[in-house]
Design a protein around this nucleic acid. Structure first.
Lengths: 340, 340
DNA sequence: TTGAAAGCGCTACCAC
DNA sequence: GTGGTAGCGCTTTCAA
């Protein structure tokens, strides 16, 4: 045996060979029984003996060995990056897991914080997933997609602001969010728009795109747009509110409802009238946004459902031939409440 | 070849044998070079040839094959259940992933929604993780722990309300949270306590324990405790507020700050004074709780850090002999603000 | 310095 | 009905 011996003290992990020995049958038979292989008929007494032996030993099949032999896996890899972006995202994550499990895939989230796109892609490829669904937190490059496909991934699906060469991309153009917000603010007669940029890491992909959308919509109309960084802390919001009038803004788009609420409270405490002096709008339509007064206006996104995405994964896995598709699907609508 | 041939159309996944062939060396040499095996000296020209060949083919090693050969993995499994319970939890999840990655473990989150404890344990065991850190969303049984250990898991660590036989348990007794809240309310002269129980699934383990803690602290002191279900929706909160006076409560503990804020707003809109008529206290010390007026009182938990837990995992993996330990570590303190 | 070969656990082909 | 066995991709011992 070329392998170093196991630590003698502990009983070693039972294999199908152990089950076979205990049941007095061959490993093949064990495999047939435990997998209910229909192509082969095993007598009832034998089945029983095998099952009992497996039970007694606490046998659990070795997924790696199985997939090595099979030449493929049913693993769908969901890379996760920084902190989940919000409740919307969490809900989506749950949905897709549910839906994929129902389609008999094994869903594995793989934390990839601090890895750049190509390093991450390599790490994912080592696991030989049948599909990778990148939720846009890690920037997947065309090269990364290529690596994954070469490693056997049938489906590489990205959900994010941009199309990625070679992958099926669900393009959610976050600029839409900014554009809708800007149009709304313009309509309300505002011309000097501040845009809150979260200082927390990992949100850049979203916040930059939303800012760009605002610029595109507002500047041609003669409005000014100014990016203002803000950390998600009470003190930071207070400090910003204290110098708010110097900014000379008559409206603010605040990345999402959480930042918007934080800022709105600080503005109010500093004696700045909302919406009279400054209109405030967020995004994501969180329930909490309805609790402050005035109620927070927001931009709601029509997020793709997990069910839809799971079905897409399954379709592409079964029919990998199809050319990479690009779906543009982000729709965004303003929910006007009292803060604008 | 007993395996069904690959689809002829697609180029098959490159293996180390392909690399060896292209570089004109043996598979052994490829392995030495790519793993920088120090026990063996390979000439620089050979190294280069191997590296180039690997690069050209886009070779990525097969993790399953590697761990099958090695007889063990560096995978730490983090089962995830329902929706993350809150921002506290998300932060913790990130921390532990970071810390474990630094210790050279591969962190994998495995969605286990809708599986009961033992089924889930079996599914986890198939992956042969070196450690499992159960965050208490899935109820791990002593039998489940046994299955995992038999499958080679060196460390099984649970973080939850109860100790689990055979595992290292970090016992966070959520009753503490309820007890602190109750003591605080009693101290403020309240005697009829309502306890909001979320109707959303997956929170029972926490909410029930917190309720029990309130009962233990309040009832001996002559206060009454009444559980009141509430869905996380504006309408539900409104309806509850409308019949609030019939409940005859002078204080409410609302599971966490989000439910507390939702309810507090509804109470205020219904003309019920907070804290005069009804005191409101939440839990988790969310930033958002400081935005409403009156500011929300809350119970803050001293959560174990991800760093600490990662080090525990590593220690147990390296020294699996130690007897399962039980650490009681939940501390909870009231943060009094204006709502009580 | 490099190569041949064994074997990790499993499944599926083929022979009995 | 059941068993023998090859071989999935990889690492590592041993021999050359």
């Amino acid at each position: 045996m070329s392998q170093t011996p196991r630590q003698s003290a502990e009983r070693s992990v039972p294999t199908s060979a152990d089950v076979a020995r205990l049941a007095g049958v061959s490993r093949a038979t064990v495999s047939y029984v435990l997998n209910n292989t229909s192509a082969v008929r095993i007598s009832e007494p034998t089945r029983l003996r095998v099952r009992e032996a497996a039970e007694e030993l606490g046998y659990v099949p070795h997924a790696a060995a199985r997939s090595l032999r099979a030449g493929h896996t049913r693993m769908v890899l969901l890379p996760t990056g920084q902190v989940p972006v919000g409740p919307l995202y969490s809900r989506f994550l749950n949905e897709i897991q549910w839906a994929l499990r129902r389609l008999d895939y094994t869903v594995v989230q793989y934390g990839s914080m601090g890895l750049d796109g190509d390093t991450a892609a390599r790490a994912w490829a080592e696991l030989r997933p049948v599909a990778v669904v990148s939720l846009g937190e890690i920037a997947l490059t065309p090269h990364g997609v290529e690596v994954l496909k070469r490693s056997g991934a049938k489906a590489v699906i990205t959900l994010g602001p941009r199309h990625v060469e070679g992958a099926h991309s669900l393009v959610m153009d976050q600029r839409e969010v900014g554009a809708r917000a800007a149009e709304h603010l313009l309509e309300r007669g505002r011309r000097r728009i501040a845009v809150i940029m979260p200082e927390e890491p990992g949100l850049d992909l979203f916040s930059e795109a939303r800012l760009a959308g605002i610029r595109q919509a507002a500047e041609p109309a003669g409005a000014t747009v100014r990016a203002v960084p803000l950390a998600y802390e009470e003190g930071a919001a207070e400090a910003l509110a204290a110098r708010w009038r110097q900014l000379g803004a008559d409206a603010v788009y605040a990345y999402n409802d959480e930042y918007a609420m934080l800022l709105m409270r600080a503005l109010q405490d500093a004696g700045i009238g909302v919406p009279d002096e400054t209109a405030v709008i967020g995004a994501d339509d969180l329930l909490l946004g309805r609790l402050l007064r005035p109620r927070l206006s927001t931009v709601r996104m029509d997020f793709v459902t997990g069910q839809y995405l799971a079905e897409l994964v399954d379709r592409v896995v079964r029919e990998p031939g199809g050319a990479p598709e690009r779906h543009d699907l982000m729709g965004a609508t303003v929910v006007r409440r009292e803060s604008t």
